[in-house]
Write a protein that binds this DNA or RNA. Structure first.
Length: 481
RNA sequence: CGGGGUGUGGCUCAGCUGGUAGAGUGCUGCGUUCGGGACGCAGAGGUCGUGGGUUCGAGUCCCGCCACCCCGACCA
């Protein structure tokens, strides 16, 4: 595709759609609200899966798989849960040409089907904890969809754990939200605010929801991962009790946590520019593209390019050569910038003559001259590391620049159009609703990081920015995806 | 479900007061190019969303239906 994408300034959401489609990350499908994740997009997901899966294993979790179909009666067992999810569920009524005795819900999330199993597996405190994760697809019948950010069907992982005591469950909830934070910051190069959701924003069926919240380049917030303390709600709904060390009977304590392919949308909106995708090297399956300048002795140039590629690959830097003669070098430059390849090496007869090559980095578009010798892999690795770090620094700076504290309602209304707003809140759902109705902004997160709280003086009492009532603390408001 | 809009080559769109369908881009072949989206020549590709109606004649006018997109209420 040779056409230019819409710029962010012209139309941010159109830019996003153009980028996703022209970088061949995803395409619309013929099924309403569902997308096709194309190889370029799926490659990012595979990198995310590999990194996250390793982190889950390192924290003691194992993978398993539970059914796609959930009996209606299961979904209905937890009152808050069914109220939250039933309206957005797809329901199967027929199978094998006959009407089913009991309808089957296509999972919108798996708490109920999993707890129906856990009930069978848990008798004693000796059976606990259970630390299971599953990689799966889920379906939520959304009214409006957006590529990666909200589609009817999406891919995710969902961890479901069972514990003998509430303290341990809470530790798990915090452990996993921190895993997500580490992943977001170290792999996605995306700074996040860690904290709690308000009651109105928490998961249907949870006692508490923790989240990581990121800022996109248009100043809007995106919830990138959640970790729920489910208390004993599902254990009670499924009558799942265990015998304690003291021979008493107690309901099991539960958590669940997940991230989805939405992270790909977050990644795009956090770093990319008007030329296309900008990918942190750690999530790029192809980190370097070599573009030979095919003039003069073409075969000699191609041979050099292949030689350099082999050397880089052997050093653990995934590299490929585009030596096709169909497109000009300029076309290739633009194409691989669109696709977000972190580093481009230009290699022509002139370079070979001088024992040098040109390396261009995707994040800043800067070009530098590198020696074509055994120092090249090290030099490239330095550039890759520098890109990974720069993306994080840049995003953090952007978030800081677009976060303001306000004390008046007038300031609040204008500030919330631009980014994150930190202000006192009286803690009531009524005020929250009123703020949402008047500004479309919501309480995104009640930060739990003491560093963050201190920086913005969030523990200081004051008066609510909206109601004027006494407020115990400040919270983070923003418009959200 | 409300309010707006759009359906014409793969994609983006033009097509006036009705007269037998066009451009750009992409695609195929050949040749020349190649350090920031190259160029020439020759090709392939459309029952104009759908069903009726008006007319000698409908992409164009009228009526119905369908699909999709945007804005709002729900959500990772």
């Amino acid at each position: 595709m040779a056409e230019k994408i819409t710029t962010r300034e012209q139309d941010y959401s159109q830019w996003y759609i153009d980028l996703v489609r022209s970088a061949k990350l995803a395409d619309y499908s013929d099924v309403r609200g569902c997308m096709v994740i194309r190889p370029n997009g799926y490659a990012i997901w595979e990198k995310m899966q590999a990194a996250l899966d390793g982190m889950f294993k390192a924290t003691g979790h194992v993978n398993a798989y539970f059914p796609l179909f959930i009996p209606e009666s299961f979904i209905a067992k937890e009152a808050e849960h069914i109220e939250g999810f039933a309206p957005e569920c797809a329901v199967v009524t027929h199978g094998g040409g006959e009407e089913l005795a009991e309808k089957l819900y296509v999972r919108p999330t798996s708490e109920t089907i999993i707890w129906s199993s856990y009930k069978k597996w848990i008798q004693s405190y000796r059976d606990l904890p259970i630390l299971i994760n599953q990689w799966a697809n889920v379906v939520r019948w959304e009214m409006r969809t957006r590529l990666f950010l909200r589609t009817t069907e999406f891919l995710w992982q969902e961890g479901h754990t069972a514990h003998a005591d509430p303290g341990e469950a809470q530790e798990e909830v915090i452990r996993m939200i921190n895993v997500y934070r580490t992943f977001a910051e170290e792999y996605m190069a995306m700074p996040v605010i860690v904290g709690k959701k308000t009651d109105s924003e928490k998961f249907a069926g949870a006692d508490a929801t923790y989240c990581i919240e990121a800022m996109m380049q248009d100043g809007k917030a995106l919830q990138a991962g959640t970790s729920h303390n489910l208390g004993q709600n599902f254990a009670k709904a499924f009558d799942c009790q265990f015998q304690t060390r003291e021979s008493g009977l107690e309901y099991v304590w539960a958590t669940s946590w997940g991230v989805s392919t939405r992270l790909i949308g977050a990644l795009i909106m956090a770093h990319s520019d008007d030329r296309g995708l900008v990918l942190p090297p750690k999530l790029a399956t192809r980190q370097v593209v070599i573009i030979p300048i095919l003039k003069g002795d073409k075969s000699k140039v191609v041979a050099h390019a292949n030689f350099v590629a082999r050397a880089l690959n052997q050093s653990g830097i995934p590299t490929f050569v585009d030596d096709s003669e169909q497109n000009s070098p300029g076309w290739k430059f633009a194409e691989y910038e669109l696709q977000g390849i972190p580093v481009r090496i230009e290699l022509g007869p002139r370079d070979i003559e001088n024992g040098k090559c040109i390396a261009a980095r995707r994040d800043t578009l800067e070009k530098s001259e590198l020696l074509l010798d055994e120092t090249l892999p090290t030099a490239i690795r330095e550039i890759l590391n520098s890109i990974q770090q720069n993306l994080y620094d840049r995003a953090l700076q952007f978030r800081t620049d677009n976060t303001v504290q306000v004390t008046s309602w007038e300031e609040f209304k204008s500030a919330v159009e631009k980014g994150f707003v930190i202000a006192h809140w009286d803690g009531t759902a009524e005020t929250e609703t009123r703020i949402k109705e008047e500004t479309k902004a919501t309480v995104r997160v009640i930060p739990t990081d003491q560093d963050y709280r201190d920086r913005y003086g969030m523990d200081e009492p004051g008066v609510c920015v909206c109601s004027g009532n006494p407020a115990a603390q400040k919270v983070v408001f923003a418009k959200a995806y």
